[in-house]
Design a binder for these strands. Structure first.
Length: 567
RNA sequence: CGGGGUGUAGCGCAGCUCGGUAGCGCGCCUGCUUUGGGAGCAGGAGGUCCCCAGUUCGAGUCUGGGCACCCCGACCA
């Protein structure tokens, strides 16, 4: 491809819109064009990359036994009403009406449709296992689209769905897809961390996310020295110990103006770990009180999973008051007639300071279970960096990352709800057990750039770079340069390399800076200066120094450098 | 949805406080010179100042209402 004919201009200045590296660089490199918040056109550079990512995914999914399908993006609302997910998705669902005033949605995902396909096509255990996948555009009216392709409202995703005869069979499929994912990300040149993840309210047990490390990532994962890895929603930990002592008599203390743990700890001169925090939630209409040690935060995902509710949020002051609670001094002490949940950490420590359910007063020397009761003890604590890891190998480290892939066991919710059944060996009807497996293809591109760039531009992993070779003719209007560059362009293309040939009449600085910005793995420079010495300059994007070789050694050297880059 | 911010040429911005001929840099076009890290000189094109209403002799600027986009928190590939 000749730069002089290639669509897309590079920008010298950073667009004001963009904050994150991938967004900024993609705009500057002319890879994407914004049409609306979270909606982008993929220009030729980005599309070439996306095609490569998709191709790697296709090959690995096919190797894992998958078959590609394509499903509509436009669904009648009934498809979603059948599983109740029109309600569950809420405002995330894009809705529209056709000319007959029928309600339609733009598909945010395809479990319902794929299950209908399975219902129509799977009849016998002989038809299983079945692994279908799609690479398509999905639509979600995100509360907050951000960072270019990292989180869009219209984005591309590979989603795979599996159907198996039972839990054991599903596990085989699940592990096979996990392995395919490891291959995919490795082949994309993208190191990922595989972490345990929350599988959601309707999920089965297993769920794993593939995370690309990046400071700009939206996800926090916790890692132990021994290899334990989980995202923060899922992670368990052993919090640091709290002061222990002989239980003392509980006493009421005046705490004027104290409504926070920090203030309470300060006033009484005790660590936050010697306080109890009582948080009240509104869960599907019921008020629930959660008591946890003061130095910890409630993990709402864990709480939601335990409660099995659809709506979970902090209760308003009015709701709390109606349930007999006193915001600022909420306490489990002396409280009844409300569902009470306690985190196990209420036992780890003694003589806690806690609320008194009356303004400007707290109790001191509260001990469980002597002074209050809970209905259930459940781990609802948010694991933090510095806590002891659950595998006992040391303390947890927290890192930020971007979720590029997610695999999880779905169970039989969709097949049962939608009536997909197969006949087993005994002639009995059963619901296939499902798994589902997503990769955000357009997000993979953005994540690759987040992870691979410097202050000058992108440094593409070779397998997903739009072009492999950036051939620059300096003084392109010089006859000798032009002749040599054209010859190399033809030779490199004939050898199967994807060459971006900068044949423009531009200054050296412009061309070098564009090459650094676009970030193709290998740069080849033909210039009058070098031609006088009978050489051509070759440099990898990630390297500082160039090597000089004779023109007839260029193709071989490029091949070698690309091979190195693939490692 | 809550909080913060921004809408002026393709891009980055000034002008708004104090109403009076719409500006700067980059990019673009033409010519000459230049040629290894975003060249120089000369000439030129390019604007519903986000939209609507109001105040005023006169609004980019003041007032009111809307819209869009970005960033920070609750959701997800």
């Amino acid at each position: 491809m000749r730069a002089s004919r290639f669509l897309t201009k590079t920008l010298r200045q950073d667009p004001g819109e963009a904050e994150s590296a991938s967004h900024r660089l993609m705009l500057r490199a002319g890879m994407i064009h914004q049409v609306a918040a979270g909606v982008y056109a993929y220009l030729p550079l980005a599309l070439r990359s996306i095609h490569k990512i998709e191709q790697i995914i296709r090959e690995e999914m096919d190797a894992a036994g998958g078959q590609e399908v394509r499903m509509p993006a436009l669904h009648p609302i009934e498809v979603w009403a059948e599983t109740g997910r029109d309600e569950a998705m809420g405002e995330t669902l894009f809705r529209l009406r056709d000319r007959r005033d029928r309600e339609l949605v733009l598909a945010p995902t395809h479990e319902e449709v794929i299950t209908a396909i399975a219902r129509a096509n799977v009849e016998s255990y002989r038809d299983l296992p079945l692994l279908l996948y799609q690479i398509q555009t999905k639509f979600r009216d995100e509360p907050r689209p951000r960072a270019g392709l990292l989180r869009g409202r219209e984005f591309d995703m590979k989603d795979a769905y599996s159907f198996d005869t039972g839990a054991e069979a599903l596990d085989v499929t699940y592990q096979r897809v996990r392995e395919a994912y490891r291959n995919i990300f490795r082949r994309c040149g993208l190191p990922t961390i595989e972490v345990e993840a929350d599988s959601g309210a309707i999920g089965g047990k297993d769920s794993h996310e593939f995370i690309v490390r990046a400071e700009t990532g939206e996800d926090t994962v916790l890692l132990s020295p021994g290899g334990y890895a989980a995202n923060v929603e899922r992670a368990t930990s052993v919090p640091p110990p709290a002061p222990e002592g002989e239980p003392l008599d509980m006493e009421l203390v005046d705490t004027p103006g104290v409504t926070t743990i920090a203030a309470l700890s300060e006033l009484l001169g005790i660590p936050e770990s010697q306080t109890l925090k009582a948080v009240f939630y509104h869960a599907d209409g019921e008020t629930v009180l959660v008591t946890i040690r003061g130095d910890l935060e409630v993990n709402e995902v864990k709480l939601r999973n335990h409660l099995h509710v659809r709506e979970l949020r902090l209760a308003t002051a009015e709701e709390a008051a109606a349930a007999g609670l006193t915001p600022g001094s909420t306490s489990p002490v002396g409280l009844a007639g409300i569902r009470r949940i306690g985190d196990p950490t209420i036992r780890q420590g003694s003589n806690f300071a806690a609320g008194a359910n009356r303004p400007d007063q707290h109790y001191r020397n509260v001990n469980y279970p002597r002074d209050f009761e809970v209905d259930e003890t459940v781990d609802v604590a948010t694991a933090q960096a510095g806590h002891e890891a659950p595998d006992g190998t040391g303390t947890l480290e927290a890192v930020r990352g971007i979720e590029v892939g997610h695999v999880f066991k779905l169970g039989t919710f969709y097949t049962r709800t939608l009536g997909a059944e197969y006949t087993d060996e005994d002639g009995k009807l059963n619901a296939p057990v499902m798994g589902c497996y997503g990769i955000g293809t357009t997000r993979v591109l953005a994540a690759a750039i987040e992870q691979n760039h410097d202050d000058k531009g992108v440094i593409f992993p070779a397998p997903i770079a739009p072009f492999q070779v950036h051939l620059i003719a300096l003084n392109a209007d010089d006859a000798e340069v032009s002749k040599q560059a054209e010859a190399l362009y033809a030779e490199l293309e004939a050898a199967g390399h994807e060459v971006f040939f900068d044949d423009r009449v531009e200054s050296a600085g412009v061309k070098f800076n564009d090459a650094d910005l676009l970030g193709f793995p290998v740069r080849v420079v033909v210039s009058p200066r070098n031609l006088k010495s009978g050489v051509v300059e070759i440099k990898r994007r990630r390297d500082a120094d160039a090597t000089k070789v004779a023109p007839d050694a260029v193709e071989r050297t490029v091949g070698e450098l690309l091979a190195q880059d693939a490692l």
